Amino acid sequence: MPQILPVLLGGDANVYGMARSFYETCGVCSLAVGQRALPALAHSRLVHMAARDAAFAQDSVFTATLLGLAELHPGKTRVLVSCADGYTSLLARHADELRGAYRFACPPPAALARLADKQRFAAACRAAGLRTPRTVTLCPGGCLPPLPFDWPIIVKPADSTAWQGCRFPGKRKVWLVRDAAALRQILDAAAGYTGALLAQEYIPGPDTRLGVVNAYCAQDGSVPWLVQGQPLLQERTPEGMGNYAAVLVEPTRQDTALLNALRGLLQAAGWRGYANFDLKYDRRGEPVLFELNPRQGRASYYCDAAGAPLARPLVEDLLCGGPITPPGLRPAVWHTAPWGVVRRQCPNKLVLRRASLLRRRGRSRVQLLAPGEGTARRVWFWVRQAAYYRKK
């Protein structure tokens, strides 16, 4: 294998998980590039923030920064991986300019428009025989239209990239809204957001009815790699709501019918590279798809915990020329919250007992502390873990 240099676009926990996967799969450290470095990369030996620029999301700055970084590392095979929605869009737009300097797998703009756009995603799912929640589009600051479903409802932004640059009191990734008065407050507070808001039918049930799927789509158009996890708990803070705090992976509970349908959805769209799906099983056990994220998910290190390293399909596809090894899974549990928090708040005690048994057998991985990290990283990690008990 050539000497590789992973270059990761972003600065959050997703970047750390991807860097850890590259380190444990290929024995290499990564560089990160983005608008800013978040605390998740603090004091790490696995990933170094090589460039940060508040203007990095501008097209000209994006390409100039990456091409300049490539010139600083001649003699290495530079592998470029987006770890954020907005950077995937930028990479898709500038793929031709960057192709000579980097190897990467990225969905074409047409595929992004079809699947990553939350408003068009539902139509693509219907064509593939997949269900999504009933949805009404709302305008921040606008009037409340009649809703064809009952309260409570879910409210979330349609444009994740525009949402990241928006700041206002009470901002969240997703809201559970119980009445029209609360919805009116959200629409007024988000008036500075330039995109649409989506009001969606609420699918009732505990966190353990949620599902998450990571996929990798090869350059030949095939989708040989999909891994499903069962969340045990979501983050409970306003800014973290919608992110997973713990995920269980069971090889015997991979939903084959669902995974085959998702494979067909991605192939029909001409997708390339990583994709991440969030879903929930309703009372009848039918999966309801919420969205596709055009990247690996923030909890995607659960794949590595289960014996399916996230970096492997990309390396086999782009560097080795395929074929991609289908994931061989083992039971495992991944968590970013302290296990005491997971144990106290997981709503399904039967599933929790299974996860606890795996943890006692050494089948668990924590997200943000890889073996071999130094003292400063360990201190940062344990301070962060202690903070969970104050904010939960």
Rank of each mutant, 00 (worst) to 15 (best):
Gly242Cys: 08
Trp151Pro: 13
Val61Gln: 01
Lys280Ile: 05
Glu201Tyr: 13
Gly68Arg: 01
Tyr389Gln: 01
Thr161Met: 01
Pro2Arg: 15
Arg263Tyr: 15
Gly229His: 08
Leu248Glu: 07
Gly321Ala: 03
Asp304Phe: 09
Phe168Ser: 06
Gly129Asp: 07
Lys392Phe: 14
Pro294Phe: 12
Arg353Ala: 15
Gln185Thr: 14
Ala84Val: 08
Asp59His: 11
Gln58Ile: 02
Glu24Ile: 01
Trp334Gly: 02
Ala54Trp: 02
Gly264Tyr: 07
Gly34Pro: 03
Arg93Thr: 03
Arg99Thr: 00
Pro287Ile: 02
Val174Arg: 08
Thr194Tyr: 01
Leu66Tyr: 01
Pro169Ser: 13
Asp150Leu: 09
Asp159Ile: 04
Asp317Ile: 05
Leu138Ala: 09
Pro309Gly: 00
Ala122Asn: 00
Trp151Met: 10
Asn293Cys: 04
Asp85Ile: 00
Val7Pro: 10
Ala64Met: 11
His94Leu: 06
Arg284Lys: 13
Ala113Arg: 14
Pro294Asn: 06
Glu373Cys: 07
Ala128Ser: 15
Pro107Ile: 09
Glu250Arg: 15
Thr65Glu: 03
Arg36Ser: 12
Lys118Ser: 06
Gln200Gly: 12
Ala95Ser: 13
Gly34Leu: 06
Pro140Asp: 08
Ala189Asn: 10
Ser30Val: 02
Ile186Lys: 13
Pro371Trp: 02
Ile154Leu: 11
Gly170Gln: 11
Asp220Ile: 12
Thr77Ala: 03
Val379Met: 11
Gln219Lys: 04
Val47Lys: 09
Ala37Asp: 09
Lys156Tyr: 03
Ala245Gln: 12
Thr237Ile: 07
Ala306Cys: 05
Arg365Lys: 14
Ala387Gly: 13
Ala190Gln: 03
Pro108His: 08
Gly240Thr: 08
Pro157His: 08
Ala308Asp: 07
Ala181Ile: 07
Ser60Arg: 11
Asp96Gly: 00
Gln219Met: 14
Ala51Val: 11
Leu368Ala: 11
Gly192Met: 05
Arg284Tyr: 13
Ala162Gln: 11
Ala180Thr: 04
Asp188Cys: 07
Thr252Gln: 14
Gly11Val: 10
Pro109Val: 13
Gly285Arg: 09
Ala122Leu: 05
Arg126Cys: 13
Leu358Asp: 08
Thr208Gly: 09
Ser300Gly: 15
Arg99Leu: 00
